[in-house]
Design a binder for these strands. Structure first.
Length: 261
DNA sequence: ATTGTGGCCTGCCCGC
DNA sequence: TGCGGGCAGGCCACAA
């Protein structure tokens, strides 16, 4: 998915354009896209005749609360977008086909009484929707995590720091690109044991988490300073050192072997 | 329980 | 021009 910044853009779009509108129809024809055992009938029953009253986000999970009490949970996988009345929450997603204006990647949709539509586009179909998602499975949101919460998330585990940061149950919202960017800015190796950080290093990490994600909201997760160098032959934008590429936490990772210790 | 791995699904890009 | 391989911002089931 899009990472946290994109989902925050979707949340803002939904808050502005989806709340208070009477829902008349649900298009959940793609059964694969329904998660948590929900059926198209159950989703229709929960939404039709109701309306959304709040748009919330925790990590990369978008939640739309209905007047009836049921919450619609939306996950965007790696290529999902939210579109309301033809207006997308973000312009373009990396690693996703360009928007050609067609609706062939529409996996889920809600029609409003005024004729408008809220839809999820997801070419790769790795996202999904579910009813009443279990928020307790997610750690504190990466944008607003406190120093104490970050300490708890990293404590008592020698697993690589990057893997821990991307563990949604410990800290919600950090994906592969943001993890690399934040560690690069904080000067920390992704391989560092999570529980080996000093207090100062943790505070540095927390500061960069917030500032990096804040700066990416509206701009996109692909706008980091490290991003252009994440390629074969790429060098550190800070000191010119050839970047190291390796799999950490199951994901392709790039970092500067010189200033990230 | 925690941690790492494979796989899911689809489309694009590169090299032959 | 066609084709195979590799890759992709995520997540879940599974095994050790």
């Amino acid at each position: 998915m899009p990472e946290l910044p994109e989902v925050e853009s979707y949340r803002r779009l939904a808050a502005k354009a989806a709340l208070g509108r009477a829902i008349t129809e649900v298009d959940a024809g793609d059964a694969w896209y329904l998660k948590g055992g929900a059926t198209a009938e159950e989703v229709s029953e929960a939404l039709v005749g109701s309306k959304f009253v709040a748009a919330r986000r925790r990590g990369k999970l978008l939640m739309l609360d209905t007047a009836g009490g049921t919450t619609l949970g939306m996950r965007f996988g790696m290529s999902g977008r939210l579109v309301i009345d033809g207006s997308a929450g973000v312009d373009q997603l990396l690693y996703s086909p360009a928007d050609d204006g067609s609706r062939r990647w529409e996996r889920f949709g809600v029609r409003f009484a005024d004729g408008g539509i809220m839809a999820m586009d997801d070419p790769r179909r790795l996202g999904g929707v579910e009813l009443d998602p279990d928020e307790s499975r997610l750690g504190p949101d990466a944008l607003t995590v406190t120093a104490g919460q970050l300490e708890a998330a990293l404590a008592a585990s020698a697993t690589p720091l990057k893997a821990r940061l991307m563990d949604q149950a410990r800290l919600a919202g950090v994906g592969n690109l943001i993890a690399d960017e934040v560690l690069w800015r904080a000067g920390l190796s992704p391989l560092r044991p999570a529980n080996s950080l000093s207090r100062n290093e943790r505070l540095r990490l927390q500061k960069h988490l917030r500032s990096t994600i804040e700066g990416m909201i509206g701009a996109g997760s692909h706008t980091g300073k490290l991003m252009p160098a994440r390629e074969v032959g790429g060098v550190c934008p800070r000191d010119g050192t050839p970047l190291t590429r390796a799999t950490v936490g199951g994901r392709t990772s790039w970092w500067c072997p010189k200033h990230q210790q």
